[in-house]
């Protein structure tokens, strides 16, 4: 058996998903939103390299943060490519560095994927906490 790779780099493309918007409209930022938004689609080849199966959790780490989401294979994706719904989860990974790119990089995110035993990041952890006076 091939040795499992611990982590790989992927280029994540984010896209709007109607099911994420519907969950947010119907129930706010609850369980349904988490189930729909906390997903990353990877190429079958990368899933194999990481030795993970559909539904296994992975940690995505980018320059500005990390989240734990469920992985799913998508035969449409090439090796090294990933896809994720646009949500609080992808926005945790996105960064805004005007010196590099004039807009916040919400749509194309460079990230590292590694299998993890941790649970999916709760939505509450993704809300910006402020000390409300």
């Amino acid at each position: 058996m091939e040795q499992a790779v611990h982590a790989i780099d992927v280029n994540l493309v984010t896209c709007e998903s109607i099911y994420v918007s519907l969950a947010a409209l119907r129930e706010g930022l609850g369980q349904a939103y988490r189930d729909r938004a906390a997903v990353v689609h990877l190429s079958p080849a990368d899933m194999k390299r990481l030795q993970i199966r559909d539904g296994d959790r992975v940690e995505l780490t980018a320059a500005s943060g990390s989240v734990v989401v469920a992985a799913e294979a998508d035969g449409d994706l090439e090796e090294g490519a990933g896809r994720m719904p646009l949500s609080l989860y992808s926005n945790r990974l996105a960064e805004y560095r005007p010196s590099r790119w004039p807009l916040p990089a919400l749509r194309l995110i460079q990230s590292t994927v590694s299998p993890t035993g941790k649970g999916v990041t709760p939505v509450e952890d993704l809300l910006v906490r402020r000390t409300v006076a």
Binding site: S64, G65, L88, N91, R92, Y96, P104, R130
Partner: peptide, 14 residues
């Protein structure tokens, strides 16, 4: 904006 923009940016509104 707290949902639409990167959290790393919005944290600056502390």
């Amino acid at each position: 904006p707290f949902a639409a923009l990167p959290q790393s940016v919005m944290e600056n509104l502390g």
